[in-house]
């Protein structure tokens, strides 16, 4: 899923500025799972804004709504009236949802309440971690199913750098596991260390972000 986290409150407040009718729009998919922008979080943000407004003597109306997905146009119809009412939409979706919201409601200002972080998974209660950067040419089969591009701080393809120590990465030995130690251990466990002895040539990055904004077209699904 896409993992995101809420922006600092003051930043959100400054984006809202003088808008007096604010629609806080949650998303029921990834960001609900990672507890950043689901229904619960829209309520939480609304009450924080109310509290702050009260302190500052600001009169402002807030509405909360959450749709199933903000990355699919069809779900926005459910909130069309709220949008019409609002001066501004604070989208609690990932960056994709925020942009799509603006593409549907072209005459409204839409601001992001979240910082979109990565494609990842829940590793323990309340902890998410990155697994993929969408390089567009998956090479997981060469590395025992552990991605060196996403999980090595330097995206190295031929083995660990000199900074790998006790399973941790030099970039943050407290918090970041060395992706290459993980790859090595996994390859040893499945008896495929031989794969790691092969020299990996230069990667073609043009299938990723470096090739410019991407599009996928599935011919048999187009109208």
């Amino acid at each position: 899923m896409i993992v995101a986290e809420r922006k600092p409150f003051d930043e959100i407040l400054s984006m809202i500025g003088n808008a007096r009718k604010v629609l806080i729009l949650g998303c029921g998919s990834c960001v609900t799972v990672c507890m950043a922008g689901g229904e619960k979080e829209t309520q939480l943000l609304a009450s924080t804004i109310r509290l702050s407004d009260k302190k500052q003597n600001i009169t402002r109306e807030l509405r909360c709504a959450t749709i199933e997905r903000q990355c699919d146009k069809e779900f926005f119809a459910a909130v069309a009236n709220d949008v019409k009412w609002a001066d501004i939409i604070v989208s609690m979706a990932c960056g994709v949802g925020v942009q799509f919201c603006g593409e549907v409601f072209t005459d409204k200002e839409v601001v992001p309440a979240l910082n979109t972080k990565f494609y990842g998974a829940t590793v323990e209660q309340g902890v998410w971690s990155e697994r993929c950067v969408g390089c567009g040419d998956c090479v997981l089969f060469k590395f025992g199913g552990i991605c060196p591009i996403a999980r090595c701080s330097k995206s190295l393809l031929n083995g660990p750098c000199g900074g790998s120590q006790n399973g941790m990465c030099e970039v943050d030995p407290e918090n970041i596991q060395c992706g290459w130690q993980l790859i090595y251990d996994r390859m040893a466990a499945i008896g495929r260390l031989d794969l790691l002895e092969q020299n990996q040539p230069l990667k073609n990055w043009s299938t990723g972000r470096d090739g410019g904004p991407r599009r996928v077209v599935k011919e048999d699904a187009t109208l």
Partner: peptide, 28 residues
Amino acid sequence: LTGDHQTFGNHPTSKNVYDMDSIQLVRM
């Protein structure tokens, strides 16, 4: 060389490149 990660230095907010690793650089 692979190179120390930029977070160690005096421009930790910069973007890194790592278009290749040191082994691919040798080969190139």
